[in-house]
């Protein structure tokens, strides 16, 4: 049976991307168009396979530098953040505005009907009826999946408690792809809070689709959770665990640092014992003889785990990583809204 491949020329987004973003690779356009049709929501990195992940990174590459487009003119992004955020909230808004769309912000939840005891489901249903695509952050885990079931418009998860933050993972992957030239054959180290950090768990899961070696560096109490390691074993991902960065730094192509998150510790004493357990500084990198091509990443904010004497070295890509939030979110918004154009 012949599969009918939809002609990309019928897609307004495809056509606009082709002209306004100067993409002339028709195979790539076909690929992106087909993947866009499959994308209904962005809830969890688990919902994406290798092709799905790559299609979003390709679309981000196409969107790079798009500061003044009318691609999403007439569309409204609803931003419903029931938890504090700086980078994620602002970069979603900037991504939409730079594509010609508009933003409707839910605002301070203390001034909404949630305070009157309205159910979260009713609030989401109402809010979603005022916009074409929405992004939600909430401290409860699974809220974004619930929103996707009831909203009737595409939903992007901007963080649900300690569970998922898929747009962060996409921008992490995009940063690795851009700075290392690809996503395969890399030795990627994770250091810091590997037990509670959702960015570490999601990025490790995403990298399991690629041919990489993963190294987890943490004190005993902050080791990567068993379920994550079991999943990596099931997918035959090569990984190893270390207590000390000195044991493995010279091997790495990427070092992904995380903050020890005080707010995650039930036991204050336990936090005090590990809060400053690692400090990655320029002299340590030199002592360990790291690769010249090493890239150091951090989802930010940082506290004292990453010294600022690294900021002006070629190793540091964490501010570039934060900037990559814009093309990634532009890509996701374009792909999700394609159906409605």
């Amino acid at each position: 049976m012949n599969h009918v491949v939809p002609a990309p020329a019928q897609s307004t987004v495809g056509r606009k991307l082709r002209t306004s973003l100067n993409i002339y690779d028709t195979e790539l356009i076909d690929f992106l168009f087909i993947m866009s049709k499959k994308l209904e929501n962005v809830i969890s990195i688990r919902d994406f396979d290798r092709d799905g992940l790559l299609s979003i990174l390709e679309m981000a590459r196409a969107a790079e530098g798009t500061n003044n487009s009318d691609l999403l003119k007439g569309h409204v992004l609803g931003i419903m953040f029931i938890e504090p955020s700086t980078r994620t909230r602002l970069s979603f808004g900037a991504a939409m505005v730079r594509l010609g769309g508009e933003v409707l912000d839910f605002g301070d939840p203390s001034r909404s009907s949630l305070q009157k005891g309205e159910s979260l489901a009713d609030t989401i249903k109402t809010f979603s009826s005022y916009c074409d695509v929405m992004t939600i952050r909430h401290p409860l885990e699974g809220v974004a999946r619930l929103a996707a079931q009831i909203a009737g418009i595409p939903v992007i998860n901007a963080g649900d408690g300690a569970n998922q933050h898929p747009t962060q993972t996409f921008l992490d992957l995009y940063t690795i792809q851009k700075t290392c030239g690809g996503l395969d054959n890399l030795k990627v180290g994770f250091i810091g809070d590997l037990r509670y950090s959702r960015t570490v768990h999601s990025l490790a899961e995403a990298l399991s689709w690629f041919d990489d070696e993963l190294y987890f560096i943490s004190p005993e109490v902050l080791k990567a959770p068993g379920y994550l390691l079991e999943e990596l074993e099931e997918k035959e991902v090569a990984y190893d665990q270390f207590n000390s960065p000195e044991d493995v730094l010279s091997e790495l192509d990427v070092l992904y640092c995380t903050r020890i998150q005080e707010e995650r510790f039930a036991d204050r004493l336990e936090y005090e014992q590990v809060k400053s357990c690692y400090r990655i500084r320029k002299s340590l990198l030199e002592e360990c003889g790291v690769k010249q091509s090493l890239k150091i990443m951090h989802p930010l904010p940082r506290v004292d785990e990453l010294a600022d004497d690294i900021d002006n070295t070629p190793y540091a890509v964490y501010f570039q990583q934060a900037r990559n939030g814009i093309p990634i979110r532009q890509a996701l918004l374009s792909m999700l809204l394609q159906k409605n154009i």
Binding site: A121, E141, G142, L146
Partner: peptide, 27 residues
Amino acid sequence: VTNNEPVDTYFEITDSKPPILRCGYCE
């Protein structure tokens, strides 16, 4: 969310003997 809002639970059964369940919401 299923323990805080009026939402029915659902789980994927990833293994049956012994049963291993993954929450469809919080994963």
